[in-house]
Design a protein around this nucleic acid. Structure first.
Lengths: 339, 339
DNA sequence: TACAGTTGTCGAAACGTTTCGCACACCGTA
DNA sequence: TACGGTGTGCGAAACGTTTCGACAACTGTA
């Protein structure tokens, strides 16, 4: 591998001049500069990132800290990672995939102490996330995909739950529905302070209120079985519900079974929305469900980009909310008559 | 951050002695060694990976080269990545997530030329994969998750399609079925030389032959619609088929719809197997489908481990095949009577 | 006492960058 | 002619490791 010295020799200049010319660090006469660039090209010179990092204290490597795959870990998380990696790559950065060990704090300390990464990208952020405190305290630049309860001045990219809920409610209300029910994620996740569960729950309620339509929540089925049971309880208590938004894929399966068991059909007798699930999953249902698809790739990209911007220089907190994409499927229709 | 010199000062020895003691590179008197270790611990010393890499030419970083997410990119690919990252982490390595640019060859050249990575992990390997030739030629250590048509002496970890097919056929035959049909992945993937499609196709045929049961293939539905049509054509031509193995998730949806349309039930009238799909997906079906779950995490782990072993020293090619895990669901039963 | 071998430690060089003080030549101005 | 300013380029130091030849202090043997 050609080094800076090789280029210097070939261009008949000092090593430091080559460095300056190639990085634009300080002015270099155009003739010299051209000569250097040509020499570099001829030798196929590539800067050694280790040497550069050692000297400049900046490696242009970001760590993506991801927790042990929960159940339901899948496409969305993959898209965070690929989106972040792509955006980083476009900006000349690299992304290190860092599985979270037993002790995430230690993990972070390790990574930064090693001098290997410039910054950290957090995913699967809890409402109360101990990692953020440690990162803030230790001065390591970081940004979050998702956000804590009070992000303060921390950079983040997250789903715009308010806009998403508004879109969903508007869609349903536009079809003529007067009462919407909402099935949140499983009780476990909810109790754990899982951001999307809490926020989506709040925002759907608010959006329904704002739109002036009826609203029922409090259900948190985490499996097909629970979904089925929840739906039956729902209709017992609120027979006038004509539209339902479900967060959990498996719960949706149960709902569909319950609908069929009742002799009903989707969408004629129930409008069903899948919230925060990918269109790829929605297509596995029959009929194809209307989905609020999370902008996962975009969030990954944003997370990486704002972290890199932060590394380049200070500035105000970068906080971005992106709404889900409403993909209308075959599970949306006007409400059944409530005779 | 404490450096080797700080430790040396505190322990009252030379820098080189500290290095030797900490790495076990050469013998150091026990007393000295203990003194050094204590000093290191007190200072919270962590070796600077950049400096180490610069000197030793080994960074302990692996690159996971992944292609642009195809459709159907999801849990499986995520598990390759997380598995590889975990295994690497356990062995003191790091995993760099490297999105494949327009020119994968250039991408690899870039990564290795930069001096950043010790080796490359390839996923989504095609039967004829140009990347392998380049990597072999350029002398960069690498291993594959999946494998080319003729892997030669290249290290790889892949699904054991033969064993998987045997298990599947044995399961079906054990239930009493006498004729099995197989729906491969979409025509596009098949034509593209996608390894799993080709190999699974071949091995299912071979396994059925070996087990002495009837076998039908040639179908490649890539969507629910195509799955439905394929199933109808299948039964027109082969009314005595009682069991079906499907590779594509969406095609399975179509098959289920077609079964229902016919007034049939699963598993009473048809035993349905989902091949190379995760149990999480299988659970979304109703009834829960019997699945041959790919050992994705394991393959990721193996890929990383064998690459690291290769880096540590030469040796014979490491080639591992791991069968899918048969998860029996509620879609398996004795054949319907063929009266 | 002299010498070879062993054991433990040291110091310096090297890896490939970036950074920074300095020197040289040239310009226009006083 | 002398002088400050400007535009270029150079050389050396530094980043934190690893590696390797040299060397001092012992040990045991002749």
């Amino acid at each position: 591998m050609a080094s800076l010295r090789d280029v210097a020799e070939r261009a008949q200049v000092a090593v430091s001049t080559v460095s300056a010319a190639l990085n634009g660090t300080r002015p270099v006469a155009v003739a010299t500069k051209r000569r250097i660039e040509q020499a570099a090209a001829e030798l196929g010179y590539r800067p050694n990132l280790l040497a550069r990092g050692l000297q400049s204290k900046r490696t242009r490597i970001l760590a993506l800290l991801f927790p042990a795959p929960r159940s339901g870990f899948g496409l969305t998380e993959m898209q965070f990672a690929t989106g972040a990696a792509e955006a980083a790559s476009e900006l000349g950065y690299h992304l290190l995939l860092s599985p979270e060990s037993a002790d995430p704090i230690d993990e972070v300390r390790h990574l930064t102490g090693l001098g290997l990464v410039d910054g950290v990208l957090l995913m699967e952020v809890r409402l109360d996330d101990e990692r953020t405190e440690f990162l803030s305290a230790s001065g390591v630049p970081f940004s979050m995909i998702g956000r804590t309860r009070e992000p303060g001045s921390i950079d983040y990219a997250d789903i715009d739950f308010a806009a998403t809920a508004r879109d969903a409610v508007a869609h349903v209300a536009g079809l003529g529905h007067r009462k919407l029910a909402f099935f949140n994620l499983s009780t476990d996740l909810y109790a754990d302070g899982y951001g999307p569960a809490i926020r989506a729950g709040e925002e759907f309620a608010a959006a329904a209120r704002a739109a002036g339509i009826g609203y029922v929540d409090g259900f948190r089925p985490g499996s097909a079985k629970e979904g089925r049971a929840a739906f039956e309880r729902l209709l017992d208590a609120h027979p006038d519900v004509t539209a339902l938004a479900v967060m959990d894929d498996h719960a949706a399966v149960g709902v569909i079974a319950a609908v069929a068991a009742r002799g009903w059909h989707i969408p004629e007798d129930l409008t069903l929305l899948l919230v925060l699930s990918s269109a790829a999953v929605a297509e596995m249902f029959h009929p194809r469900l209307t989905t609020l698809e999370p902008p996962s790739t975009e969030l990954g990209r944003l997370g990486a980009r704002m972290l890199i911007e932060r590394l380049r220089g200070d500035g105000p907190p970068r906080q971005r909310l992106v709404p889900c994409n409403l993909v209308v499927g075959d599970s949306s229709a006007a409400p059944r008559s409530l005779s």
